[in-house]
Design a protein around this nucleic acid. Structure first.
Lengths: 205, 205
DNA sequence: TTTCTGTTGACCGATTAGGTCAATGTTATT
DNA sequence: AATAACATTGACCTAATCGGTCAACAGAAA
């Protein structure tokens, strides 16, 4: 790619990146068109090829960008010293939720890239990032203090229930609801509070 | 459309319908191509236009077909006299699960159709079918005997948790797991059993 | 004025799109 | 066997779209 891209104003860079992420998040590599990206970004198609050489170059740049961005944001909000099951989840999920709410295309793009099978890019994307969910679940269980849970509660099942529930919760929000992040988070917490009452031993409530 | 389509053998009809559902489930209306459908169905493109006149005709036929098919299958397995909260859910969800496992393209297609915004078909699809989830949740609550639930459990929240959890559960199954429906259902039931122990008053367990 | 740089948009050849249709294969009728 | 009737093909049409190129333009700097 052309390093001059980074000399553009941050806003201009973001406009272009976000437009590209949006289109690649919506369609697979083959059906995503540079015309649509340029039009969405409000720039000429020529400029895309000026900075990224080719469609493939743009795609691989975005992959690198999105992976770094997400990992950076995630680690920024993670408190690794916490051991309380629900506090870990609340922290991690509210982070993930704000990512989904603030950067849905970025998240969707990185997940889609994992399943991309177009021969032009398949071999070149490093798949480290595919199992976000799985690794998130494992890191929960490793750090959490499971002794607070009722004996008849399976920690693995509980983690899965919460993870999948959280995703469905986010997916079915309306665009308006996504604008008020604090209220959104409170609604989400109400659900978690209910679950907590159900799965914790009485003495920990 | 050409009514002669229905004189074809059931298998041939299904081959064509399934190929079309698959492609329309994968892409939106505009990016789905009749060439790909014909090739997947193993027939010539001309035949598609012979029976369905146009791409739009095929799409609207599929919408009608899928909506009727799903509603038919659903009602077939629904026992409206049951009042136990978890039995209703188990019944309804195992039905929905088997639909997702047996007819994933059909389900995906009908959900995608709800969000389709291509001007050629947008106005012509009847949106009755969009809120399957919402109406399912409401019908749960109307029929279920909520007195069995612990007093600190919100029925609405519980229904949402279970619905969203169920979707995540299905979505993260591998293709191999989907082949053994009975085992799949048992794994799912383990989750529900745990939840049931948590939310029911002791005397109902 | 000149030079340099960011940017455009018309343009290219190739591919793909929805749709048509004469020709071919297949089955039933006489 | 000959014919009529229908099912099916695939080459073909025109228009649109694709990734990619490039001469030209705008504006700031020299």
């Amino acid at each position: 790619m052309n390093e001059k891209f980074f000399t553009l104003s941050k806003e201009r860079q973001d406009t272009i990146i976000n437009a590209a992420l949006h289109v690649f998040a919506k369609y697979d590599y083959k059906k995503a068109s540079t015309d649509e990206i340029a039009s969405l970004a409000g720039i000429s198609k020529g400029l895309i090829f000026h900075y990224f050489d080719s469609k493939k170059g743009l795609y691989l740049f975005l992959y690198d960008y999105a992976a770094n961005f997400i990992m950076g944001e995630m680690s920024k909000f993670t408190d690794t010293s916490e051991t309380d099951f629900f506090k870990i989840i609340v922290n991690s999920q509210s982070c993930k939720m704000s990512m989904l709410a603030k950067h849905p295309d970025c998240m969707t793009f990185i997940v889609k890239a994992f399943y991309e099978d177009s021969p032009e890019v398949k071999s070149e994307i490093d798949t480290t990032f595919g199992d976000i969910e799985k690794s998130a679940a494992e890191s929960f269980l490793a750090r959490a203090d499971l002794s607070k849970l009722r004996d008849d509660v399976s920690p693995e099942k509980l983690v899965n229930i919460i993870l999948w529930f959280a995703e469905g919760f986010m997916r079915t929000r309306t665009p308006e609801e996504l604008t008020d992040l604090e209220k959104l988070n409170n609604t989400y917490l109400e659900y978690l509070e209910m679950l907590k009452r159900l799965v914790y031993k009485p003495e920990y409530l």
